[in-house]
Design a protein around this nucleic acid. Structure first.
Lengths: 205, 205
DNA sequence: ATCAAATATGAATACCCATTCATTTTATGA
DNA sequence: TCATAAAATGAATGGGTATTCATATTTGAT
């Protein structure tokens, strides 16, 4: 299934195309995919209902287009923020921070990505499977370089994704402490990742 | 909003009531809330469409009923599995294991709980906020008893929920390694929680 | 200025689905 | 056995919405 009819070329067409994307992002976030009608989207975008179908073959294709775009945005954002970091620890910290700041700026992303589980399960699976795959590559490298312990990196990748996602959830949904400061939270998380949760007497192996 | 019309009393009524719940659980899991019609549910339950409304005032109320029931089931299951454990470490391990085994047995739970984010956001918030609150109580106690380090227990609770949920997701959706063994995965997770991810030379404080 | 292609319009279409209700069947207790 | 209540039926209703299409406008090249 193609996600768009064709790339718009003229100035006006580009504006219309982006107006649709912007309205959809906003409405999908506020009301969810199912409660958002194509008419809601077109009227918020300031265009006629029929115009929508000049750009997208269906409502679902628009959703997929947004999801794919966002998954790229997330990867690019994280990659750019950790590119110049040299240690795995710093990469991890900046990666988490980048993700949280991104979803805080654009809380739409959260909703849209998770909602895929209910719109197209394969899309959801693919999203996390491919994210994990990349993560594992980075972790394996760090194991080789002796920076992190030799654990099952696939499991570790899901642990780290879980941490990042739920901390993001807390921040985006304003769960718990209302005065959350991203840096402070990330410090706590990194402390956990570095030292573990428990008090032990024995030195580390 | 009440979730059911009234508790059924006679034998047949109880059967019908449970047939509806079972069919709904199955169909919401397979196709999601929005793609499941009341007719789908009643025909899979082997009853007429109208009968549905003798038990539930609306489709949404059935969903809420399932969600509330499941959140109780999860808490009860975890509580019963950790009741006799004495150390925080064991409680944590058995809690994670109980959760994963439960969602593996009834993968419906996963979908239904997360889908609440798109059906009724307050429901979703309440679910995790109250889960976190309980978690924090337990963690605070363990901090007092010197079993775990004195970190922000609210942040820690989201970290632990995130880990558990994403490991559960991996298992339920069969992401990555297809021969996942729950005990082995939980061992990796607990190792992480105990020692952290990184190799450090200094002994623990 | 002219024309063809690209864009845009919005009312009409066609389908879907939650819920209702008049009617029938089944259970219960006197 | 009969009367009453409880449970069940399923066709009909009504509201909603994704998509289409005949028509109109705008754009850009010649």
């Amino acid at each position: 299934m193609q996600t768009i009819v064709k790339e718009p070329t003229t100035r006006n067409a580009i504006n219309t195309f982006h107006a649709i994307l912007e309205a959809a992002e906003d409405l999908f976030y506020k009301n969810g995919y199912h409660k958002t009608t194509v008419n809601n989207i077109t009227s918020q975008a300031g265009i006629a209902a029929g115009t929508f179908y000049l750009y997208f073959p269906s409502k679902l294709s628009l959703y997929k287009h947004l999801l794919i775009q966002m998954s790229h945005d997330i990867r690019r954002e994280i990659a750019s923020k950790i590119a110049d970091k040299t240690t795995r620890f710093e990469k991890e910290r900046e990666g988490i921070k980048a993700f949280i700041n991104l979803v805080r700026r654009r809380p739409h992303m959260y909703n849209i990505i998770w909602e895929s589980l209910y719109i197209d399960r394969e899309l959801f699976r693919d999203y996390y499977a491919s994210f994990a795959k990349r993560y594992v590559r980075g972790l394996d490298q760090s194991v080789q370089q002796g920076e992190i312990r030799a654990l099952d990196t696939e499991v570790v990748s899901y642990v780290l994704m879980g941490i990042t996602n739920f901390i993001g959830l807390k921040v985006v949904l304003n769960l718990g402490d209302k005065n959350d400061d991203v840096d402070r939270i990330v410090d706590v998380v990194m402390d956990l990742i570095r030292h573990g949760l428990f008090i032990t007497d024995a030195p580390k192996p």
